[in-house]
Design a protein around this nucleic acid. Structure first.
Lengths: 254, 254
DNA sequence: GCTTTTAAAGTGGTCAGACCACGGATTGAC
DNA sequence: GTCAATCCGTGGTCTGACCACTTTAAAAGC
């Protein structure tokens, strides 16, 4: 965590690493903006006094980090900051951890609960309308598990967006890939019954109403309840799935 | 966010990108573990049917992502997942956002509030002892702003660790660099008065006590109060700093 | 025999030059 | 004017060589 050990500012690094930090710092300082086009590789190499392979190693690294968009025959362009890389990095970091697909829900709850509190303070009318719209979509897609899942996600994402916090938003986007995997995995264990789905819609609506009334405590409580119910439901389904006599798991399609 | 657009599994990619995903997937699947040594570049290049420069571009990218540790004259080694890269990625992603140093506090509150709830359920005796230890350090470093800041951070980090959630922990580590910068920046605006510091210690202690009593609601409330007070304090100091000159400071948000 | 010195082998780091593949602009024919 | 072929600049790849560092093992010295 501490960068003290790394003499970053010095020129102790060499080759690709030096070029890498060169561009990274210019990205950070805003010296290079999204959409900017870099010089041709051969010119850049000459300018920075490195060979083309070395320069390419650095550029490729930046591209892998999502900071650069290198297009064959056209050139290299600075890319707008993208959370997808964050998501990949997070996935990589969390990969060795056990039960990570369950654990990532804790991060989700953390972000959303704080987001909805902020949203109660900050959400504009437009934000509220956007959330309401996702709620409508949710109601209209009860029969379609696929679209239902999407609109469910859209609802929660809209809340985070309404918080007006870029940090919360980016982190939420970052955990989204894992969230999706988690969602897919648990869909295998969960039945979509009318009683459940109707309760689901109601829970979302209650959350939204509290938010619309700018009541942070109630909104957070209802959101937590919503998560707890989902967790409980999943747990019960898991238990029933492990009852050999009562149940035979054989659903590939749902 | 959606990976659908990217035919990742196919071999549509070429060159360095292909090699990159090759290793990334082996990292994800656990096929390559931390500490493993890769084959020599020349051998790898021959094995994967690419030239050495192309292979190097991929390896360098992995190294920049913190997944590989390439040592001159020794070889390339798989590195254990490190949150520092996450932190850098987050910093890059959030760089273009305005007031990011203030905003990142929202992420901090989000993580810690959920963490302390989990910690109330899950924290072991060892965890509690560790937190108590940081509390002692905090008390003993009241006179030293530097050490005081460190032990303050250590206290909060210990709480997140006690949550037992790898996701929360990693994300917290990821935002730590920004948190540090934020802390340093606001230290400029904040005076350390005995009244403030003693209140600070008390606030920490109250949080800890609620945690030790396994009372999530109280613990979270006290933690939120602690953050709110810190925020309020900073705001007042900012105002007083601008007072003499008949401030025309813009409020960031209403 | 043991230690020290030295040389060799293996590794990543760098370079130069050449050629290929792709995209876009220019040019030409119609 | 439209469309086609061509050319040029770009990134993509390869080859082979050499340098710098590390380790190891052989050789020299004691």
């Amino acid at each position: 965590m501490l960068d003290i050990t790394r003499p970053d500012t010095e020129e102790s690094q060499s080759g690709a690493a030096r070029v890498f930090t060169f561009f990274r710092d210019r990205l950070l300082s805003g010296d290079l903006k999204a959409g900017d086009r870099l010089l041709a590789e051969r010119e850049l190499a000459a300018t920075l006094n490195v060979s083309r392979p070395v320069l390419r190693e650095a550029l490729r690294s930046l591209a892998m980090l999502g900071l650069l968009d290198i297009q064959h025959g056209r050139g290299a362009f600075v890319r707008s900051a993208d959370a997808s890389v964050l998501g990949q990095a997070l996935t990589l970091c969390l990969a060795p951890e056990p039960n990570i697909l369950d654990d990532v829900l804790q991060a989700r709850i953390a972000i959303e609960c704080q987001a909805i509190r902020l949203a109660c303070e900050r959400a504009s009318e437009r934000d509220l309308q956007a959330i309401a719209a996702t709620l409508d979509t949710l109601v209209n897609s009860l029969d379609d598990p696929e679209r239902g899942g999407e609109s469910d996600y859209a609802f929660h994402l809209a809340i985070v967006r309404a918080s007006g916090s870029a940090s919360l938003m980016k982190i939420y986007e970052a955990i989204s890939p894992l969230l999706m995997r988690s969602h897919v995995e648990r869909r295998r264990d969960t039945f979509r019954e009318p009683a459940i789905t109707s309760g689901l819609v109601d829970a979302h609506r209650q959350v939204f109403l509290a938010l619309a009334e700018r009541d942070p405590d109630t909104a957070e409580r209802r959101l937590r309840d919503h998560f707890a119910i989902g967790d409980d439901l999943r747990r019960r389904n898991l238990i029933s799935a492990y009852q050999p006599h009562l149940h035979q798991a054989k659903r590939k399609r749902s």
